[in-house]
Computed example of a mutant assay.
Amino acid sequence: MHQKQDSPLSILAECANGYIGVCDCCLEYNFVYKNLLLAFSQDELVRFCEWLISYRHHRETFLPLPHGRTRVYKSPLSNMFIAFHDEELDDVEQMFCQARLVIEARGIVQPQ
């Protein structure tokens, strides 16, 4: 996570509970949703969001929890899981679709 205060962070997509942004200086992508903040390269962000979306209805991720969340994803860390309500995954999917469009447009306008 880039911590320079004067570095410009461009918000690519947002909703009431979070955003997807990119630091224009180091090209680190932030995925922020509620109390979760993850930092990725562009490819990692795409893979992470595609993973969440593609497995949202998979029986492997279905685990009803007492607080109402029903989709639980296992992280590479053996003791860390990410849990979502279906409505939260709707937010994530919408943000990712918006961010993907902006990323593609930026790639056309600013080829590297």
Rank of each mutant, 00 (worst) to 15 (best):
L77F: 14
N30P: 00
I11T: 15
D43P: 05
R59L: 13
N35K: 14
A83N: 10
L36P: 01
P111R: 02
V46D: 02
L101Q: 15
S54L: 08
D86F: 10
Q98E: 12
F48A: 13
T70L: 06
Q98G: 01
F81V: 03
N35A: 14
F96T: 01
V46M: 12
L52Q: 04
D90P: 00
Q94T: 04
V92P: 01
S41H: 02
S54P: 00
V92E: 00
Q3H: 09
L36D: 14
V72D: 07
L52W: 05
S41E: 08
Q98D: 12
N17V: 06
F62A: 08
D91V: 07
M1Y: 13
V92W: 00
Q110L: 08
W51Q: 00
Y55A: 11
C49Q: 02
I103K: 01
T70Y: 02
K4T: 04
D91C: 03
M95S: 03
R59K: 14
A99D: 01
E87V: 10
D6F: 05
L65T: 12
D86A: 08
F62M: 07
S75G: 02
V92D: 01
L63H: 14
D91G: 03
F62R: 06
V46K: 10
E88W: 00
K34L: 07
D24K: 15
L12N: 07
S10N: 10
E87N: 11
D86L: 07
D86Y: 11
C97K: 11
A13Q: 06
H67L: 15
E93F: 04
L38H: 08
L52R: 01
R106M: 06
G107S: 11
Q110I: 04
Q98H: 09
I20T: 11
D24E: 15
Q5A: 13
Q3K: 10
E60I: 08
H2F: 04
L27P: 00
F84W: 04
E14D: 13
E93G: 06
Q110A: 08
L36A: 04
Y29R: 05
R106V: 03
N17K: 13
H2Y: 15
G68E: 05
M1V: 15
H85I: 02
V72C: 07
S10Y: 09
L89H: 09
C23A: 09
H85M: 08
N30T: 08
K4E: 09
F31W: 05
L12M: 12
V32C: 09
F81E: 13
M80R: 11
Q98N: 13
E93W: 00
E44N: 07
E60T: 14
R71K: 15
D43H: 11
N30R: 03
R71G: 04
Y55P: 01
L9H: 12
F31R: 04
Q94H: 05
Q3F: 06
H58Y: 03
L101I: 09
L27D: 14
Q42K: 15
L27M: 13
K4W: 04
C23I: 09
V46A: 10
N79L: 07
H85F: 11
D24S: 11
R47H: 14
N35R: 15
E14M: 15
D86P: 13
M1G: 15
R56T: 07
E50D: 12
M1I: 13
E104C: 04
L37D: 12
S75E: 01
F48M: 11
A105I: 03
N17C: 05
D43V: 08
N17A: 10
F84L: 02
